[in-house]
Design a protein around this nucleic acid. Sequence first.
DNA 1: CGCTGTGACCGGGCGC
DNA 2: TGCGCCCGGTCACAG
Length: 290
Amino acid sequence: MPELPEVEGVVRELAPAVEGKIIKKVEFSKTVYDACAAGKQCIVKNLEPSYFEEAMQDMFIKKVTRRSKYIFIDVEKNHQTFKFVNHLGMTGAWFVIHHLDEIHEEKFRKHVHAIFTLDSGELLVFSDIRRFGEMRLLTTLEEHPPLLEMAPEPFADDACLYFLQKCTLPKYQNKPIKEVIMDGHVISGCGNIYATEALFKMGIHPARKVNRISKERKVKLFETIRDILRESIENGGSTISDYRNINGEAGGMQHRLKMYGKKQCSTCGSKTKSMTIGGRTSVYCPHCQH
DNA sequence: CGCTGTGACCGGGCGC
DNA sequence: TGCGCCCGGTCACAG
């Protein structure tokens, strides 16, 4: 499951690999076309696949950046600029290769849904096992309003204050803290893995109501989340099942996790508990977290 | 108008 | 072996 650190890893590798190159051709899979014909949107969200392919042809790749868990690719054609916006969903992965058989793992090779042929002769390939990934071609972010409602980057100066202010809104007051820190309108890029880790580190029960945590503890919680995200970036992200960098390699952060996916508390040895919060499985230590 | 709850999108993996 | 169900990031839409 790619969260912010995993997306950051992809962007850091993708940027030098594709910036300055031109997309000569785009081909979506038959699956994408069939879904579209059936009236569903599969990966390609705001355009018909055939139109998307045509629109992307001869696009110059200017810049690859990350915003929250989204990959933004600034592209340009005929002096007009566009934003190609991609979300990896649960299982999306990019590869820059010369032949599809360079994708070593069958599960990724089997689920290739977009092939961008670059002027360098390389293939920029998007594989997505569960097809929760998204691609949009926008002229401005305003075309997809949810992109404007994201919380600031967690490393930005105003991010902590933004979090604190959101917490004072009535609609968040009585919600479990875990649900709130995983809400992209409150904090950007913190998914289940890092929310679980940060709450464990802070000794806060994931179901604890927002208004039952002091401002000081909220500030410390925010800083903990930010530090864990940074630590994960430095360690190549977490590979729980399907995250791979563009060389198909797994990350290293999963070895440093202390609570996510654990049966026993790494501090006191108690059996961990699990409950559903905001529709998602939440693991915690009943002895260490209150 | 704004908030809340629910469904939709999927295939891997697991339990029975 | 085989079948059915659960999981999850995000958004659309209904109420």
